[in-house]
């Protein structure tokens, strides 16, 4: 019986044009199922961020196909991709990338506003999410008033606010100290185990790799190992 995958990539390649074209991702085949806690690892330049960006509909493959919950991303227009990301994918970036003029609550709520979620549901969900990430006492704090770890936890709350099919986290712990990194990983692992949220990380942080239940290693744009623990 055919399995249902959240993400399904076939012969995915990305070549950056230039004087010397660079093949960042090379004929990658990848399936990710619901509820996975997967780390895509590899040295710098191995293609893990490019792969993540293509999975997230931020970048277009040069060849190959990519499906999210059986929906083909190839061929979507920019606006269709933006709308798709809004409703299907949560993002956590390395540099937090919160909106500096909004409070923690407003940052988490922002995506739901774009989704036109009614006020009551929004309020309820944002309070619950910020409680989940341990920031229910920082609702009215702006990003500049929060530590790096706290900002990244707001980013996680924001990513989950849209009830995405999965969360893509690009080097989420790279700018965090150990304590904040462990704290963040604990939260994400708990959300994965208790609420079944699928997390896909690109990282070379050993702390993340140690917590992942599946580790995909890339080298020169190719998958060289795919370890399920």
């Amino acid at each position: 019986m055919k399995k249902n995958y959240v993400i399904e990539a076939e012969n995915l390649s990305k070549i950056y044009a230039g004087v010397v074209p660079v093949k960042a991702v090379d004929e990658v085949n990848l399936q990710i199922q619901d509820n996975e806690f997967t780390a895509i690892v590899g040295p710098s330049g191995s293609g893990k961020s490019t792969l993540l960006n293509m999975i997230g509909g931020l970048d277009r493959p040069t060849s190959g196909t990519i499906k999210v919950n059986d929906i083909l991303l190839n061929g979507m227009t920019d606006n269709q991709l933006i709308n798709f990301r809004l409703h299907h994918i949560g993002f956590v970036f390395q540099s937090f990338n919160l909106i500096p003029v909004l409070t923690a609550k407003e940052n988490a709520e922002f995506i739901m506003l774009l989704q036109k979620v009614p006020l009551q549901q929004r309020e309820k969900r944002v309070m619950s999410l910020l409680k989940e990430v341990g920031l229910d006492d920082k609702l009215d704090s702006r990003p500049s008033q929060l530590s790096g770890g706290q900002q990244q936890r707001v980013a996680v709350a924001r990513a989950l606010a849209s009830k995405p099919d999965f969360v893509l986290a690009d080097e989420p712990t790279a700018n965090l100290d150990s304590k904040s990194a462990f704290n963040l990983l604990d939260i994400m692992a708990r959300l994965n185990q208790e609420e079944g949220i699928t997390f896909i990380f690109s990282t070379h942080d050993q702390r993340v790799i140690d917590r992942a239940r599946r580790v995909i290693t890339l080298e020169d744009g190719k998958i060289v190992s795919d370890e399920i623990r």
């Binding site: 990301r85 809004l86 970036f93 500096p100 995506i111 774009l114």
Partner: peptide
Amino acid sequence: EIGMLMAVGMSK
């Protein structure tokens, strides 16, 4: 920041 807004789903 604008890139992030579009990445997370804010339309053009």
